[in-house]
Amino acid sequence: MRIEVAKEKVALLPVNPTVLDTLRETAKLYTTRYSTMIEGNQLKPEGIKEVIQLQGHFHDRKRDEHEVKGYYTILAQLEQYAAQNHPVTEKLFKLCMP
């Protein structure tokens, strides 16, 4: 019941293109964070946002920074392919890799 009530509340929220873009960007940043964290990346969400959106640098975390940029770039490219209804395959994924 609680889930249905929550879904109804969300359905009534005003969702416009700006809100959708913000949600999409937040999801990409957090996906980048947790997917690279599995590999030992130690950048926090704020650090990832700084690297991606503000072109920030962490001199003591160059490997982490490079990994985050690469992962985020691949996500963005795959999102473009998906928007074009292009099938996402392992071959395509490998082509996206920097």
Rank of each mutant, 00 (worst) to 15 (best):
M1A: 14
R2A: 10
I3N: 12
I3S: 12
V5Y: 11
V5L: 15
A6Q: 12
A6D: 10
K9I: 11
K9C: 09
K9V: 08
K9M: 12
A11R: 15
L13A: 13
N16H: 14
P17D: 12
P17T: 06
P17M: 01
V19A: 14
V19T: 15
T22F: 11
L23E: 02
E25V: 03
T26G: 04
A27V: 10
K28H: 13
K28I: 04
T32N: 03
Y34D: 10
S35I: 00
M37Q: 10
I38T: 07
E39A: 15
N41F: 07
N41I: 06
Q42R: 13
L43R: 03
P45S: 10
G47V: 00
K49W: 00
K49S: 10
K49Q: 08
E50A: 15
I52Q: 01
I52D: 01
G56W: 00
G56M: 04
H59P: 00
D60H: 07
D60E: 11
R61T: 01
R61A: 12
R63Y: 08
E67M: 14
G70C: 09
Y72W: 07
I74K: 04
L75A: 09
L78K: 04
L78I: 08
E79W: 04
Q80I: 11
A82W: 03
A82S: 14
Q84F: 09
N85V: 03
P87Y: 07
V88Y: 05
K91C: 01
K91E: 14
L92G: 08
F93K: 09
M97K: 11
P98W: 05
